[in-house]
Computed example of a mutant assay.
Amino acid sequence: MADLYLKALESERKSLWAACRLKGLAKGTPERLRIQELDRLLAEHKARKAG
């Protein structure tokens, strides 16, 4: 079965990252902070799923 939560997190991260690259946003902006939060959530989810 597809992991919809994982797909949603990855999709949001990908779109935010593209927007940051396009706009040239610096570190510390809300978008970049959200990407860091998504990275943490992805790592936690993958760790929970692995064991």
Rank of each mutant, 00 (worst) to 15 (best):
K7C: 10
A8W: 10
L9K: 02
L9D: 01
L9C: 12
E10L: 13
E10Q: 15
S11Y: 11
S11F: 10
S11R: 15
E12Y: 02
E12W: 02
E12V: 06
R13Y: 06
K14W: 11
K14I: 08
K14T: 11
K14N: 10
K14C: 06
K14Q: 10
K14F: 13
S15F: 15
S15R: 15
L16I: 12
L16Q: 02
L16N: 01
L16V: 09
L16R: 03
L16D: 00
W17R: 07
A18G: 14
A18V: 13
A18P: 01
A18H: 11
A18D: 14
A18Q: 13
A19P: 00
A19K: 14
R21E: 14
R21K: 15
R21S: 13
R21C: 14
L22I: 07
L22N: 10
L22E: 11
G24R: 06
G24V: 08
G24D: 07
G24K: 05
L25M: 15
L25K: 02
A26V: 12
A26F: 10
A26P: 02
K27Q: 11
K27T: 04
G28N: 09
T29N: 06
P30E: 04
P30K: 08
P30V: 07
P30N: 08
P30H: 07
E31R: 10
E31K: 09
E31W: 08
R32H: 07
R32V: 12
L33F: 06
L33Y: 03
R34M: 03
R34N: 01
R34A: 01
I35V: 13
I35L: 09
I35E: 00
I35W: 01
Q36T: 14
L38W: 00
D39P: 00
D39L: 12
R40V: 07
R40H: 11
R40S: 09
R40T: 07
L41Q: 04
L41P: 00
L41M: 11
L41N: 01
L41W: 01
L41H: 01
L42C: 00
L42A: 01
L42E: 00
A43H: 02
A43V: 07
A43Q: 03
E44Q: 12
E44M: 14
E44T: 09
H45P: 00
K46Q: 13
K46A: 05
K46H: 06
A47C: 03
A47G: 02
R48H: 02
R48D: 00
K49C: 02
A50R: 07
G51A: 13
G51L: 09
